[in-house]
């Protein structure tokens, strides 16, 4: 059965915020996340006829946004930057809850591959097989990243429940 490709407006409306949250969790700066996601959508729009026919247009946009963000030399400073700038950048909103600040800070302390695996697994709802496919590594490697990432997060955040597995 033939299915029409999604329109740019549909994909934008459905996924902009979700992608921004994922990038925010990884890089720790919501404004920065929003900017790179917008740029990724602009690049998708410029070649939408092609991108819209991919099996996973959103995956393409996510990858572009991710690449844009990691190419910035300052990635290591984003969590600090977020904490410092939050009141002045968006002063009309309430500050984040302490738990969320702690979560972002704990994520920022993880090695990049563990952080990425956790974000894709928990925020993008990807199963281990898909995370492995996206990262170009074996499933066992992703399981190891998730295990280590969860353990480090548990220590950082003083989580008390027993160690669980991936979904």
């Amino acid at each position: 059965m033939h299915r029409d490709p999604p329109t740019f407006d549909e994909v934008y409306a459905a996924h902009f915020a979700d992608l921004t949250v994922q990038l925010f969790a990884y890089f720790g700066d919501r404004q920065e996340a929003q900017d790179v996601v917008q740029e990724a959508f602009c690049r998708a729009l410029a070649r939408w006829r092609k991108v819209s026919r991919y099996d996973d247009p959103v995956g393409w946009i996510r990858r572009v946004a991710w690449n844009l963000a990691v190419s910035r030399w300052r990635r290591a400073r984003t969590a600090i930057g977020f904490l410092r700038r939050q009141p002045t950048v968006e002063p009309w909103a309430d500050g984040p809850e302490p738990d969320r600040v702690a979560l972002i800070a704990a994520l920022a302390g993880l090695p990049g591959n563990q952080r990425r695996a956790l974000v894709l697994h928990y925020l993008a709802d990807m199963p281990v097989t898909e995370v492995a496919h996206r990262c170009g590594v074996a499933e066992g490697t992703v399981k190891s990243w998730l295990h280590r990432g969860r353990a480090a997060m548990a220590t950082q955040l003083n989580l008390t429940e027993p160690l669980g597995g991936e979904r």
Binding site: A25, E97, D99, R100, L103, L118, Y122, L123, R150, M153, A154, L157, L159, T160, E161, P162, L163, G164, G165
Partner: peptide
Amino acid sequence: MTDQLERLFAD
């Protein structure tokens, strides 16, 4: 812990 972590990400 996973539940706690899931909850934090969901929040």
